[in-house]
């Protein structure tokens, strides 16, 4: 089977994770907001990566924050993974992307396992646990299932848990998803690029790395017991940026031989060298949201000299998956930088 056929099937599988997915929209991370800003690399970044956005004093950046769901209906207050896709605009008109999410690890290490995961995690009707069942859970020292938020009819959670019971590599991501909550602001969440990339320094040294964005304003979620509000994240961001810019620090962790370099389900030890690569400053919510949040297409494999993909099969598969998805929704095709 060729790569494009696999990509088509992967997009089908991702679309199947939302039963109300609307053709012509993103299969996941459907609801989003585009933001304008700029990125300034740190002094240290210059000696670790020769890519242009780590060498120039400042580059323009476009960011799309999003809710993880593929549903066209907005539910900001539901417990869900959030996305932060960042485009760094370079001097010759080209660009490079960094796609991150609030989930620190992914569910599966290979494409075949993703197909199985998508089959198992197909949304099923949400069953509210009865009070008696909750008591039974407590007696067994289990945490009773949370009541679904108002309006939630289906959920992939039961299927994902059943998959994780059989596959230990998925357990961390499933537990994290179950407890992830909702941020009070897109600017108050940490986002992780999950995969390993290979960066090359000006002196030619190549290093395996993982990137994450840390919010300068700090991480803060809404109260898990509060009634979920459906629509607040975009307005909160507009108000926040109207008062003052929001900032994120780009952290780069350097892996060692023996770390999980090609497996996004496995975390790296906290003792690995961590470098501050720069600061992203968000100025304002983009005026043209059709262009900045809907038609724009990101791709985690849209890279520039100085950054390469690792052997991670999920990362490699995402290149074609994002292209197929872009075509299906008539997005702006993602021009690769001569690769």
């Amino acid at each position: 089977m060729d790569d494009s056929s696999v990509a088509e099937r992967l997009v089908d599988a991702v679309e199947s994770l939302s039963t109300d997915h609307k053709r012509g929209t993103r299969p996941i991370h459907t609801i989003g907001v585009g933001v304008d800003g700029y990125f300034q690399p740190s002094e240290a970044a210059r000696s670790y990566c020769k890519a242009e956005h780590f060498q120039r004093p400042c580059v323009r950046a476009s960011v799309r924050f999003s809710n993880g769901s593929g549903s066209p209906v907005q539910h900001d207050g539901w417990s869900d993974v959030r996305g932060m896709a960042t485009r760094f605009h370079l001097s010759d008109g080209s660009a490079t992307d960094l796609i991150a999410m609030t989930l620190p690890e992914f569910f599966v290490p290979t494409v075949d396992q993703f197909f199985e995961f998508a089959r198992t995690a197909k949304p099923k009707p949400v069953r509210r646990e009865s009070p008696w069942q909750k008591i039974l859970d407590m007696l067994q020292l289990k945490i009773p299932r949370r009541n679904p938020p108002p309006g939630q009819k289906e959920s992939p959670d039961a299927g994902a848990k059943s998959f994780a019971d059989r596959h230990r590599f998925a357990q961390l991501a499933v537990v994290q998803t179950d407890t992830i909550g909702a941020p009070v602001s897109y600017a108050r969440a940490a986002y992780h690029a999950v995969h390993t990339f290979i960066v090359t320094a000006p002196d030619g040294v190549r290093r395996p790395v993982r990137f994450s964005w840390q919010p300068v304003a700090g991480v803060c979620n809404t109260k898990a017991t509060a009634t979920a509000v459906d629509n607040y994240l975009r307005q909160e961001l507009e108000e926040r940026l109207g008062r003052w810019p929001a900032r994120f620090m780009l952290m780069m962790t350097i892996g060692e031989a023996g770390d999980a370099l090609d497996d996004p389900t496995q975390p790296w030890p906290a003792k690995r060298v961590r470098v501050v690569m720069g600061t992203l400053t968000l100025k304002n919510v983009a005026a043209d949201q059709v262009a900045a949040a809907e038609r724009i297409s990101f791709n985690p494999c849209r890279l520039v000299p100085g950054i390469e993909v690792s052997e991670d099969p999920i990362l490699r598969a995402r290149r074609n998956v994002y292209e197929v998805s872009c075509q299906r929704r008539n997005g702006i095709p993602c021009p690769f930088n001569g690769s």
């Binding site: 020292l141 019971d165 059989r166 230990r168 357990q171």
Partner: peptide, 18 residues
Amino acid sequence: KAASGDDDLDLLPRRLTL
């Protein structure tokens, strides 16, 4: 050291408590 098993992830709170 198995990669896969017949686990029950709901038991994580009890395992941690014990």
